[in-house]
Design a protein around this nucleic acid. Structure first.
Lengths: 357, 357
DNA sequence: ATGAAAGCGCTAACAT
DNA sequence: ATGTTAGCGCTTTCAT
């Protein structure tokens, strides 16, 4: 079998390097992997040749003997919202700097879709997995356990694996509490279905009301199918048809808020003069839209950073690093979409100071 | 060397399956790969066992003997804008359905960063590469040529490789032409540096002016560092300090437009009553912000679809498929951020009908 | 139709 | 310090 059989992938191997220097593959391997026990003159020589020829070790071969892939999987929902997209970018970069490749696993809701995802995931000998959505197929957990695969969840909780994120319920609680402190009592909420984060945020909403002696009213809460601006519009439209008797709105994420504001505007309802709107996440756009969105900020950089790091530590077995949940601080970012109840006020009052970004 | 040496990754191999069925690895391999020449009874038996045990072939091993990775790389700029993020998602999904994994390669501007990117890229025996930004390091092209790696560019042009996207210059031309048809003559532009797409769109702007007998004025054009809302704000602020004598603005992408509108608002300048704003890309958000953005739509789904498909065809060597640029139709989407020059008019006039999304 | 054997490029254990 | 050897899991001739 000669080289001619291949389609031009004339990549040179460790043997080629060894031969050209007049040494053995083992020595070259030692040099490539920065190991000791190699004559420094020979080392220089090899390094030089590697640079000249542009030799790079074949990952598949390495992967095979080392029994690892240098790749981590990241499981993301098919409904990949802006916050998750931003988070993914951060995690990906951090992982990359730690020497991993990131393999994407989009998953649609539904067991059969998850099955497909698991099948693909298990073909790779992944070094670890980061999860941005809860999976419901038992096979996942079985696979993770059986293969003792390091797993960390982020912005969601998955079995006993460590998770990094904010305390969403508490954050929502504080956000709604702020709305109440502004004088609002008739506070509606738009949430979504399918993911637990919507539920946790809704719980915070209910608790804040109860805590302040306001009787929660389920008819004030609407759950839409996806956490998108489009569905924020649907949710708001539907809500307005039922009743206009509310002065504030809390949405489970910023995209829903953006859609809701859109409908409010179209209906001639002013934000924040007539209705205050509070989002969650603080996606990049929230600071640029009209009106600038008041929202609960997740420290996305830290979350991504910590998630990547936690996984890395789990993979490399840093002692004492495994198994701990990391709760990062959220922050209420007060901008222009919320205002005191008083109908004459135009802007968010000076009681609360804007927290610098 | 017994199994106990491993860290719990007790994955079974093709040999295990073979032994349990009482046959040879070759036969199992044939079954797994759906090849002929295997007794149908034995085939069933093997298939059954595979399902029961959850056996999946080891990709690294396959990769090694097949001399391919089943992975395609996608090179994206470090400044990963919303349009590119959306496009990436689409491409990733399509590629996934074609049986590839997608490996991310973020690249910062600058030769040394590109070098690093190339080094990582060449470690994988990629089946192909999709490029969303021009690379300037000659090493890339050398590597692609030498290894005869299938490459397709999207939303950018790279050497002689096929590209899929819209005719940006023409699209910008038409957009600005629309602004002019609305009566605008004093049309400013905010573009960005670093990527050729900004240049192409700027060219279209200049040509439209010239075409309509308006003398281009370089002081009306400002180039900012990044194509983000934040820099759209910077660009607009700077512009306003120089002169308020313009009635329309064209931005090189939607995010710049969003930032520019933000500043206009803050300055009490109404959009579109005082200044019409036209974007480019039609990112998801553009249809939900206040005011809804008039913009030039790139058919993002088709672009992603075609890019993935073109690469796949190049990889599998579909005859006659290689080397052709695919130009997809753009479309001016008229929403609320543009209006006729007449200062009394509030909304985009009825001359142009809104094109349905 | 099936099995034996070679080999993909690399690393690690074992000699020397 | 360095080379030899075995083997990671798979596919693919080549026999049979």
């Amino acid at each position: 079998m000669t080289a001619g059989a291949y389609t031009g992938k004339d990549m040179l191997s460790i043997k080629d390097i060894a031969r050209q220097v007049g040494t053995s593959p083992s020595t070259v391997s030692r040099v490539v992997n920065g190991k000791a026990h190699v004559n420094s003159k020979k080392r220089e020589q090899i390094l030089k040749l590697i640079k000249e020829t542009g030799y790079v070790p074949n990952k598949a071969a390495r992967s095979m003997v080392l029994q690892r892939s240098f790749a981590v999987g990241i499981v993301v929902p098919d409904t990949f919202n802006l916050f998750q997209q931003e988070l993914f970018s951060i995690i990906e970069r951090r992982l990359e700097s730690l020497g991993y490749h990131t393999l994407f696993f989009f998953t649609k809701l539904g067991l059969s879709n998850e099955e497909d995802c698991l099948r693909r995931l298990s073909m790779e000998k992944l070094d670890g997995v980061i999860i941005l959505q809860e999976m419901h197929l038992p096979g996942f957990f079985e696979y993770f356990s059986r293969t003792a695969l390091p797993v960390v969840a982020s912005t969601c909780k998955y079995h006993e694996y460590p998770t990094v994120g904010v305390n969403e319920k508490q954050a929502a609680f504080e956000g709604v509490n702020y709305l109440i402190s502004l004088g609002h009592k008739k506070i509606n909420m738009i949430s979504g279905i399918g993911f637990a984060f919507g539920t946790r945020r809704t719980e915070g909403y209910y608790e804040a009301l109860t805590f302040n002696g306001i009787t929660p009213d389920e008819s004030r809460v609407s759950s839409v199918q996806y956490y998108t601006a489009e569905f924020g519009m649907y949710g708001m439209s539907e809500m307005l048809q039922k009743s206009r008797d509310f002065t504030a709105l809390f949405t489970a994420n910023d995209e829903l808020a953006i859609g809701a504001i859109r409908v409010l505007r179209d209906e001639g309802i002013r934000v924040p003069e007539d209705v205050s709107v509070l989002g969650f996440d603080d996606i990049y756009m929230s600071n640029y839209i009209v009106p600038r969105l008041t929202t609960i900020r997740q420290p996305i950089n830290e979350i991504g950073e910590q998630a990547a790091l936690a996984l890395h530590q789990n993979i490399t077995g840093v002692p004492g690093s495994a198994g701990f949940d990391i709760e990062l601080p959220h922050r209420l970012v007060i901008r222009e979409s919320t205002a005191p109840l008083s109908p004459s006020t135009t802007k968010a009052a000076g009681v609360y100071k804007e927290i610098p970004c």
